[in-house]
Design a protein around this nucleic acid. Structure first.
Lengths: 193, 193
DNA sequence: GCTTGAATTGAACATCTGTTCAGTTCACAT
DNA sequence: ATGTGAACTGAACAGATGTTCAATTCAAGC
């Protein structure tokens, strides 16, 4: 069972995924060749096929793992809807600021997924959005929120939160904690009565 | 000066831009070949070079014209900051719902611009954002708004508004006018004290 | 009818594309 | 010392890529 010392597969495998992640995020899936990925890894193009069946799977696996990890990253806490919403927003921002490249890919490269793969990612995205919609619905019923359309509010809030990734750069004027607070403030007011 | 009747260049030219727009929006710049564009136009690939110096210019011109047209699409009206903000939000949504393909390209294909072209588009984007920031700053000073960070609020609001394009489809449950109202409501509350 | 010239073709270019696979390497187990 | 097998190379594949350009088409103007 133990891997042989000389084996590189448990090093090269992750390296391939990492290189694909970086290059897809920087140049876009269609603009990155297998040879470019191989070069980044320090290997010939043919060797990549020991670690992925094809280029499409490289993209799909990155996106699927990202979405699954995002879903696992939190649970709706017990408590009043406002606290639940705050937890959602803060987790979303923190999670997204931590993995800018994955986030970028997961939402820029949807159209490069083959249709079955696309359906899988869309379903995962739907499950994530449903959690926010659920929080908003309960809050609306209990009178804590005033959102005319919970589905729209869900998409508006997520778009707004995810927008951080378009401008945030490490070491900038604001720390993640500041950003969390500012965005949460805006969301809180946006859904308030 | 008058074009000859037999001339097709004033027909083919726009057709080329239109085909590029559609295909870039659908498949992404890098995934669309000049031959694919030519086929959509009904012409051989070589003929495209009568209407564009190269593929890059096709993308850049679409984006630049879009941004310039967006800037021309409105002016900050006289009046209280809240009315100015409402005008901005409603115009933004209306304008974006009217040209989903251009909007999509202008913000998905930034990384496919050569660096000088990128700088031009970024400058135009900056000028557009500055208008919203200006409204928020005045409103903040006059006490009409309570935004802790006007630059962040600018980006958050624009991200939220532009987000409509990710889900809106013609003939859906909501009319553009409904959407304008719902989003404006959320923005209004988000910046209120 | 003939000339002009803009619009377009179609072939050619050098290079790149994703993917396959027979052959090589070399740390390990025996 | 020898054999094994995972990891990898390097060449090959069939076709696509952006771009150029000599040659063709054909309506307009004379």
């Amino acid at each position: 069972m133990a891997r042989k010392q000389g084996s590189h597969s448990d090093i090269t495998g992750p390296k391939v995924r990492q290189a694909a992640l970086r290059l897809f995020a920087r140049h876009g899936f269609a603009a990155v060749s297998m040879r470019a990925i191989a070069k980044e890894v320090g290997v010939q193009a043919g060797a990549l096929y020991l670690y992925t069946p094809d280029k499409q799977a490289l993209l799909f696996d990155l996106m699927r793992e990202h979405m699954e990890h995002l879903l696992d990253s939190w649970q709706v806490p017990a408590g009043p809807p406002e606290a639940q919403l705050e937890a959602f927003c803060r987790n979303h921002i923190r999670y997204h600021l931590d993995r800018p490249e994955l986030v970028f890919i997961a939402y820029m490269e949807l159209r490069n997924l083959e249709s079955e793969n696309f359906a899988v990612i869309e379903a995962l995205r739907g499950r994530y959005e449903a959690q926010l919609t659920g929080i908003l619905q309960v809050g609306q019923q209990e009178g804590a929120f005033a959102v005319p359309d919970t589905k729209l509010a869900t998409l508006a809030i997520i778009a707004m939160l995810t927008g951080v990734n378009t401008w945030y750069r490490e070491g900038g004027r604001l720390q993640p904690a500041d950003i969390e607070k500012i965005y949460w403030d805006m969301v809180r007011k946006a859904v308030s009565r």
